[in-house]
Amino acid sequence: MTDDDAPIVLTDMVAEFRGPTWTLSNFAEHPMDIDGHRYATVEHYFQAMKAVSAEDHDCIRDAATPDEAKRLGREVDLVPDWRDRRTDVMRRALAAKFTPDSEAGRFLLATGEATLIEGNDWGDQLWGVSDGRGRNLLGVLLMERRGALRARE
């Protein structure tokens, strides 16, 4: 990433992960290796980790697109404690994507002190904000990861 590629934060907030801030999206392709497997996106990893069976996990991991991975993740039998595990799974995926020496990690650091909000129009009020409401867990975890990267500088 060059200085010209760094996100331009004109306010104290990034309101969505599209266009110039696409790198922050779970659908942005930044391949990562976790536990001996390669995942094309955070979405591939997150959805694959829902699966009870290794076959379903591998099918999701190998999905052609993050959209397909998400669709497949909605169709599998979930690991029994998924609701309790999902935040830690996302945290692990973000740590694998946003490493200190990666383009994605440098991009995240370049957001400075901006509040990161996963603004969306598909109704996700757990991981993001839709219609002005939501827990914005993805944004919170990204800011947490940014703090961890900053502490390593």
Rank of each mutant, 00 (worst) to 15 (best):
H37K: 15
G134D: 03
V89D: 02
M90Y: 09
A48M: 05
T115F: 04
D131V: 05
P31L: 13
W127D: 01
E29N: 12
V14N: 00
D67T: 08
R91D: 11
M13D: 00
D81F: 06
L94E: 07
D101R: 09
D101G: 06
G36R: 15
A110V: 08
R91M: 04
R61L: 03
T99A: 14
A151I: 09
G119I: 13
A96G: 10
D33Q: 12
L126G: 04
N136C: 05
W22I: 02
R85K: 09
G73C: 03
W22C: 02
D58E: 15
M32P: 02
A48E: 02
D101E: 15
T115V: 14
K97R: 15
A151C: 00
G147I: 05
L126E: 11
A54N: 11
D33C: 08
V76A: 07
W82R: 02
L72P: 00
V79Y: 04
C59L: 15
E16F: 07
D56E: 13
M49Y: 02
L138R: 07
G147Y: 14
I117A: 13
G19E: 03
D58S: 14
Q125V: 13
A110M: 03
P100I: 15
M143I: 08
Y39K: 11
R61C: 06
R71H: 04
A63S: 15
H37Q: 14
D58G: 09
V129G: 13
F98V: 02
V52L: 07
L94A: 07
L10D: 10
G119W: 03
R74N: 01
R92M: 10
R145H: 03
L24T: 00
D121W: 06
A110L: 09
G147L: 12
T111P: 00
F17C: 07
V52F: 05
R61V: 06
R150Q: 09
R38I: 12
H37L: 09
I117R: 12
G123Y: 02
D121K: 09
P20K: 07
A110R: 00
W122A: 13
L72R: 15
F98N: 05
S53K: 11
Y45R: 12
Y39Q: 09
R135D: 03
W127M: 04
H37I: 06
K50R: 15
L108F: 10
N136Q: 12
R86W: 02
D88W: 05
H30T: 10
T23G: 08
T23L: 04
V76P: 02
R61H: 12
D33I: 13
L137I: 11
P31N: 12
E29V: 13
R85P: 01
A48F: 13
E118A: 11
I34N: 02
A40V: 03
C59M: 14
R85F: 01
F27P: 00
D12E: 09
V140I: 15
R145M: 05
R145F: 02
I60K: 06
Y45L: 14
T41C: 10
C59S: 12
E29M: 14
D88V: 08
T115N: 06
E75C: 14
M13F: 08
R38N: 12
G119N: 01
R83A: 08
Y39W: 06
C59D: 05
V140G: 00
T21I: 10
D81A: 12
D88F: 08
E118W: 08
E103N: 04
T99W: 11
A93V: 01
